[in-house]
Computed example of a mutant assay.
Amino acid sequence: MRAIAENGDKAARNMALEALGSDMTFRNLRSVPNLHLEVIRKRPFSFMSAGEKQRTIYTANNEQALPGVVVRAEGSPATCEPAVDEAYDGLGATYDFFWDVFKRNSIDDEGMPLNGTVHFGTNYSNAFWDGQRMVFGDGDGEIFNRFTIALDVIAHELTHGVTEDEAQLIYTGQSGALNESISDVFGALIKQYTLKQTADQADWLIGSGIFTDKIKSGGDHPAAIRSMQAPGTAYDDPVLGKDPQPAHMDAFVNTFEDNGGVHINSGIPNHAFYLAAINIGGNAWEKAGRVWYQTLLDPALKPNTKFQRFAELTIENAKRFEVEAQVRDAWQQVGITPPS
């Protein structure tokens, strides 16, 4: 967004500045661990039985008042409005993955209903989890498509809720980059699970489809927000600039921007997960995903955990799935060598 504000035309600059202004509020809210989940738990609502989804999709009608007007509830038929139905299906796919694979009953593991609001703002070019619901902008149509178009973006944002509930990783520096990376990991896994792709069949792109075809990629794949296979190649465009993500600790970016580089340095643990999944082979959610999920639940994972400690915990949790060597090798390839 900062690059667009600097390099885009007048309309693009206005879009970026508006998004940046709103996003600061949402990011500050995310930096207060578990605040929203505690608010939700005090609100009266009925839980469904374990394994049963409860989704409600609202529209903000291009305003910024939340939640908006209900346009689709659980069990109701498709509306034939893409943003509404994509949000409904994306929430469902995320719930199904966590239930089917980990027997996790919604974000909080207590059956929390999943709500989403579409058509937020005018040309708003982002999506976010605000602790109570998913919120999706329509994009500006020039740089960004609608944000419901990418399942992994929906799953990424909902996974922030899981992280808030389990680990409360502080949203700054390396712990914040781990927070972002965990969301990318499960966003990628949920897309792969839905498409029935093995690790070597997947594209490992986050947000493929979010950019319009006017945006240039940095590799031999469509432009995306991030690449777990090759961090730094997701996009390379005159307006957006070049994807700044490093894939190795040698290129770690020290910055005060972006909450200490949470969306930048997340490329390092992202790439470690990709390498672990490829090393193990098969369906990435069956072993690599389980290792990362058990690490997220591990009481030893503290809010201020850094890359080194997180790597150590994943290796320890990998032992129960007999993939310790593959996970250790993945971390070593990104410049992190846990003790034997």
Rank of each mutant, 00 (worst) to 15 (best):
A5S: 14
G8H: 01
D9N: 15
A12H: 06
A12V: 00
M15Q: 12
T25A: 08
N34F: 07
H36E: 09
L37T: 04
E38C: 02
E38R: 15
M48Q: 10
E52G: 00
K53Y: 02
K53L: 12
A60W: 08
Q64N: 12
V70G: 02
A73M: 11
A73H: 06
A78N: 14
A87I: 08
G92S: 09
A93F: 02
W99S: 00
K103N: 09
R104M: 08
D108S: 03
M112G: 07
P113I: 05
Y124I: 07
A127V: 11
W129I: 12
V135R: 07
F136E: 14
G139R: 04
I143A: 01
D152C: 13
H160M: 09
G161M: 13
D165Q: 07
Y171K: 03
G173Q: 10
A177W: 10
N179H: 15
S183G: 15
F186A: 06
D200F: 01
W204T: 06
F211T: 03
P222D: 08
R226S: 14
Q229C: 11
Q229K: 15
D243L: 07
M249Q: 13
T255R: 09
N259F: 10
N259C: 09
H263N: 13
H263E: 08
N265D: 15
N270Y: 05
N270Q: 12
H271F: 04
A272N: 02
Y274C: 14
I280T: 14
G281N: 09
Y293G: 06
Y293M: 05
Y293L: 09
L297D: 05
P299S: 12
K306T: 15
F310P: 06
A318H: 03
E324S: 07
A330T: 00
